[in-house]
Simulated assay, not measured.
Amino acid sequence: MEFDPNNPVVKLCVQGMDMEANGKPEEASRLFLQAWNEATNDFEKYIAAYYVARHQANVSDKLNWLETALQAALKLNNEAIKGAFSSLYANIAKCFEELGDLENAKMNHDLAGSSTVEPSDKGPFYHGTKADLQVGDFLTAGYKSNYKSELTMNHIYFTALVNGAGLAAALATGDGQERVYVVEPTGSFENDPNVTNKKFPGNPTRSYRTRAPLKIIGEVTDWVRQTPEQLQQWREKLASNKGEIIN
């Protein structure tokens, strides 16, 4: 299932995270439980259970919710979820340690270590920009960040979600037309550490980065455009984000 920020369960989880950031844990917990109760598929259950787990005061209850999230994630067998397994197993191991179950703690620590893998996403991949480029051109690192103009980027970023690339194009600097190119990595790539296991577990936006050039092999024109109001909300979020970009 493709990650959709407008999914009702995802939106409830985002609201819950906002409540956490505003020092309102009880309201956050209520929203996460509402998300769980409204979840209708394994992806939504995985996301909701993950957040419900971190609001449990009782270790056994927290373990139960983490294992619920894990079982839903295992059923998905989705590229976007793979990046979360290491963190899920590590948190489960910590719960077992607190419960004095060292055998299960060790087993889950081992699973956490073996779950750290390079992305195996086969694409297709997309890059959103306002630059006017041609098939056969190469996108390279070394340009200024769209989000922090004083920062020169060491990597070039791309995604396997065309709507995510469309959003990046809309938010990119410049006055040109929004363009989404189909790209082909020419070298190894990794999960984007700026989004992987940050707000959401794993890499649900299937966002990646590489130091090697990206070759443009096509262009798409059909993606879900954001409304002016939605774009303004995104710009406000980016402007208020005080976190450092991992470069």
Score class of each variant (00 low, 15 high):
107 M>F: 13
109 H>Y: 15
109 H>E: 14
110 D>L: 12
110 D>G: 03
111 L>S: 12
111 L>C: 11
111 L>K: 15
111 L>W: 06
114 S>T: 08
117 V>Y: 12
118 E>K: 13
120 S>M: 11
125 F>R: 09
126 Y>P: 08
129 T>G: 06
133 L>M: 15
134 Q>V: 12
136 G>Q: 01
137 D>N: 14
137 D>M: 08
138 F>K: 15
138 F>S: 12
140 T>D: 02
140 T>W: 02
141 A>Y: 02
142 G>P: 03
145 S>W: 03
145 S>Y: 04
146 N>T: 12
147 Y>F: 15
151 L>N: 06
153 M>F: 06
153 M>W: 11
154 N>Y: 00
156 I>L: 03
159 T>E: 02
162 V>Q: 15
165 A>H: 09
165 A>P: 09
166 G>A: 09
166 G>F: 05
171 L>S: 02
171 L>E: 00
172 A>V: 00
174 G>P: 05
174 G>E: 04
176 G>P: 02
179 R>E: 14
183 V>S: 08
186 T>H: 05
187 G>I: 03
187 G>A: 08
187 G>L: 04
189 F>K: 10
190 E>M: 07
193 P>V: 02
199 K>E: 15
199 K>V: 09
200 F>H: 01
200 F>I: 01
203 N>G: 06
203 N>I: 05
204 P>D: 03
205 T>M: 13
207 S>Q: 10
207 S>I: 02
208 Y>Q: 07
208 Y>T: 00
210 T>A: 01
210 T>L: 07
211 R>C: 01
214 L>N: 09
218 G>R: 14
218 G>L: 05
218 G>P: 09
218 G>S: 13
